[in-house]
């Protein structure tokens, strides 16, 4: 085999991989729809020495806001040229123990005002330089599961056959509390829906809609602009 043949085959493989990747990306991207709403109730803005904390609501019995979603929003809000300093959720909750546990966390801004009268609480908030507390509340629900996939393994090998699909729906609200005025300065809501498919002909190929990741990205970029007062 000549070296020219080898280069040509290598280029061909790269082209096939690129086409497949493009196809997959196109399928994945087309599967999710995201809507973001902003409701502003007050002026916002943040200084470079100030920070925010993003906390998940976990009071409800039916569901609780996932820690991973809270971390995702926090990471994205802190990125970029307009990035904001975000205090990690668990670090803040541990430092403020027992005031921000699921049963004791303030539910209204008036509760926060009462809480700030405790010197130990207000001094810790000041130590962290927290200007805004952002409460994330929501979940991702999976509905409309259809289809089935069967897999079998034998002495000569194994494989799967079938088709499965489901719909994911992410609904999250971010309420922004201004610690200096004890006021709710706004709410950002995001709703993302997407259909995922898993066709299986010998090998299952998951075509997953990145619903929660898209909800996180949209909410985080809107929240970053909102807090910066853009």
């Amino acid at each position: 085999m000549s070296s020219a043949d080898s280069v040509s085959r290598g280029t061909g493989r790269i082209a096939i991989h690129a086409c497949l990747s493009f196809f997959c990306a196109a399928v994945l991207a087309s599967c999710t729809t995201t809507t973001v709403d902003e409701f502003r109730q007050g002026e916002t803005g943040i200084e470079s020495h100030e920070s925010i904390v993003i906390l998940g609501r976990r009071q409800g019995s039916a569901y609780e806001t996932r820690e991973e979603f809270v971390d995702c929003v926090g990471n994205r809000v802190s990125r970029g040229s307009r990035g904001i300093r975000v205090i990690p959720e668990q670090e803040f909750i541990d430092a403020m123990f027992p005031w921000f546990e699921p049963r004791t966390a303030p539910l209204r801004t008036s509760d926060l005002q009462a809480l700030m009268e405790e010197e130990v609480v207000s001094s810790k908030i000041a130590e962290y330089g927290i200007r805004y507390i952002v409460w994330l509340d929501g979940q991702t629900e999976t509905t409309s599961r259809t289809g089935s996939i069967s897999c079998a393994v034998g002495p000569g090998g194994g494989g799967c056959f079938g088709f499965g699909s489901w719909e994911d729906d992410s609904n999250f609200d971010a309420r922004v509390w201004d610690v200096s005025s004890f006021a709710n300065v706004g709410t950002i809501s995001t709703d993302a829906t997407g259909q995922s498919y898993v066709p299986a002909v010998v090998v299952p190929i998951p075509l997953l809609a990145r619903v929660e990741a898209n909800a996180c990205n949209s909410l985080a970029s809107q929240l970053q602009q909102f807090v910066n007062g853009d």
Partner: peptide
């Protein structure tokens, strides 16, 4: 237990 700790202290 965290819930107990917070409830007990407060």
């Amino acid at each position: 237990l965290r819930d107990l700790g917070s409830n007990f202290t407060l």
